[in-house]
């Protein structure tokens, strides 16, 4: 098990998550890291011949040296202490609480991204290994190809007889918030924008997680929605500024009726005022409609609607 994050993750604004907030996750991560190394239960079975034989056969490893010398292949380290998938029988480590909290926060997807093992010596037949887990880091939220999520990292050390380390492993997973309807058979989102030479930069920006505001290269005026020329100085040299992603709700509606294609009602649409001095329309998400109010602080979040379209939306800014 080894791999790298398929795409470099970049830092993104916090996405409000109920019932567990991003702040609560960070706080829990700090607590778990402060626990330091926590010993687990010793392996239920000692290092034994039948398991080594099965493993070698499964891996297609014909090297006779292991069984001849009574040594376990080093990559089997995890095998000896792996817990049976029986509910309620788990030996809890500092990682479990954090993973549960991530699930509760909506980061229910999981993919292993790193597994780095260090071998100190071979484990010997008859030896009973004991794992010890140290939670080291929670990084995020990050936007990744899979969705917004956290990278959780921990270290496991296996101790053998005489309390000496046999192997160590750094393990990292990405716990991500599955995108709405990431199923492969998701139909195309029906409410596509028309895009032309004057507006393409905005939609491309949304895809790469940038809120781009048209900016006149000559007089510096910011303008949204963007146009074809600078109405102040007539310049056609138009570029864009990447907005901070912060905003304040200026007005909003809660749409109930009639049904809108591609949407579930009720949903909230707002006019958001940006500190950069322009207004923009977008959905207010991660907030019950009854709690939306003019003046609330918002932060942009990016929602893929289908394979083509990412819409910038707005979530409550955590205080």
């Amino acid at each position: 098990m080894s791999g790298r994050d398929p795409r470099p993750a970049t830092s993104v604004p916090a996405v409000a998550a109920s019932p567990v907030s991003d702040d609560e996750l960070r706080e829990l991560a700090g607590k778990q890291a402060a626990l330091g190394e926590v010993r687990g239960a010793p392996a239920p079975d000692p290092v034994n011949e039948p398991m080594i034989r099965h493993w070698l056969a499964a891996m297609g490893d014909a090297n006779p040296a292991y069984l001849d010398k009574g040594l376990a292949p080093p990559a089997m380290a995890q095998v000896w202490t792996m817990q049976a998938p029986r509910p309620g029988a788990r030996d809890r480590s500092p990682v479990d609480d954090l993973l549960a909290a991530l699930d509760a926060g909506g980061y229910t997807g999981v993919v292993a991204t790193n597994c780095e093992q260090t071998y100190h010596r071979y484990a010997r037949l008859g030896e009973r290994l004991t794992p010890a887990t140290r939670f080291t880091d929670l990084a995020g939220p990050k936007r990744t190809a899979l969705g917004v999520g956290y990278f959780a990292t921990w270290n496991v050390t296996w101790y053998g007889d005489g309390d000496e380390p046999v192997a160590e492993m750094l393990f990292r997973v990405l716990k991500f918030r599955p995108r709405e309807g990431t199923r492969e058979d998701r139909p195309p989102y029906p409410l596509q924008p028309a895009v032309n030479q004057d507006t393409a930069f905005f939609w491309e920006g949304a895809k790469s997680g940038e809120l781009r505001i048209q900016t006149c290269a000559d007089c510096g005026r910011l303008r949204h929605p963007p146009g074809a020329l600078c109405p102040r100085c007539r310049s056609s040299r138009l570029t864009y500024t990447v907005a901070s992603g912060l905003g304040t709700l200026y007005s909003y509606v809660v749409h109930h009726h009639p049904p809108v294609p591609g949407r579930e009602t009720p949903f909230v649409v707002g006019v958001v005022e940006l500190p950069e001095g322009v207004r923009i329309v977008g959905n207010v998400v991660d907030c019950p409609p009854g709690q939306v109010e003019i003046g609330m602080a918002l932060r942009v979040t990016y929602r893929p609607m289908d394979d083509r379209l990412v819409l910038p939306m707005w979530a409550p800014e955590e205080p």
Partner: peptide, 17 residues
Amino acid sequence: GLEMSWHVPFGLMTPAA
């Protein structure tokens, strides 16, 4: 159509809204 494109994709697409 371009003007509508800043609104319709967000479901803001009826006169009442």
